[in-house]
Design a protein around this nucleic acid. Sequence first.
DNA 1: CGTGATACTATACGTCCGTTCAGTAAGAGA
DNA 2: TCTCTTACTGAACGGACGTATAGTATCACG
Lengths: 203, 203
Amino acid sequence: MTVAPSKKARLSVADRRALLEDAACACMARGGIREFTVDKIVAEAGVSRGLITHHFGSMDMLLVAVYSRMYREWIAAISAPHHGRTRLESLVDVLVSPALFSREVLNIWLTLWGEIANNPVLRAEHRARYREYRDTIAAALREAVPPGSSIDVDTVASAFICLVDGLGVQRCVEPDLLPEATARAACWALLSPHLASEVRPVG
Amino acid sequence: MTVAPSKKARLSVADRRALLEDAACACMARGGIREFTVDKIVAEAGVSRGLITHHFGSMDMLLVAVYSRMYREWIAAISAPHHGRTRLESLVDVLVSPALFSREVLNIWLTLWGEIANNPVLRAEHRARYREYRDTIAAALREAVPPGSSIDVDTVASAFICLVDGLGVQRCVEPDLLPEATARAACWALLSPHLASEVRPVG
DNA sequence: CGTGATACTATACGTCCGTTCAGTAAGAGA
DNA sequence: TCTCTTACTGAACGGACGTATAGTATCACG
């Protein structure tokens, strides 16, 4: 369970913060916001109770750090190099891959969304990150639309993000009802009508 | 704020339960799961602390009651009579109407999803309700697909539900970024390719 | 006009929450 | 080797949590 590399080792601020964020994510993945508590997180990280305040100031600030970290990793994952396929194809594949489309990861997102909706600090963080996310998808989309097309890639990207979010909800709540292939098909059902025919994968 | 129709009136079990469920929904709509507490709910309802245990046994059971109620009302709303339009058209309209597509209602759903993902009792309740929900949409869809079409309406209904869920997340987290018209357009973008051309509304 | 059933109140209880803070010890620089 | 900074510990705090329960008051029924 608990990773205890050495008994009394002092870590750099960055390393210790990362370790606490990891532990916080593990707790959230396990039981949502109810597991996001000081006691659970420090037990997971194998440190003392005072350390969260020392490094983050408050639980709210740790929550923001976790959110920021999740978004950063998510965008990095969908921006990963694509081997001999279109950017959009590899992007969709990554989104429905076990790395992102797992109950654990999605439970963290679902939990964070519930907090964003009710936490002004988190919402401010969200605003900036969402823009970056949408732009990444819009860029991939722009490469795949037929030349001279009049569609607004930002709008399509927004709708696509909504679908991906909804697929995530479904997958998190009832994983067996939504296999990876079905999710991928749903993605292309939304995207294909806007694309040049040669870039549409088989349905 | 608090609805206090009479000072010491004794209500029927059904009425009092409904009143407590209303109060619980109001709290959830206001601040998610963090407002779903005994103190907040009884204050909202204007009753004493013991009443939740008396009528529901525990907070967990109240949560299940709230979930059941939300789903019942949601399905009733999308099943409402449609005046001179196809069932599918009026269904989509209701889904993006202020009655359902409001920050308050969606905040309750978002909160409940987070709980379903981590609460076995709620998940069992969800399973039955979701089936009913999907069947309602599949029925409306079946009326709109071209005769002899080979599409699987259940699959399309599932994908559509995911999109609606995702639109709800987006709308709840950042209402201004997703106006009703955009949401409606996203719905039809997913549905239209499967429909007979004469039933597609203008984009 | 009693009288029993029970909707409802109000208090008390133990647990867990996030934060504070005085104290400890590790490790870099001298 | 000494010293100073600070990462880190762990106990203590006040408050909020859900639940249990003894007591009160209301209404149906006789």
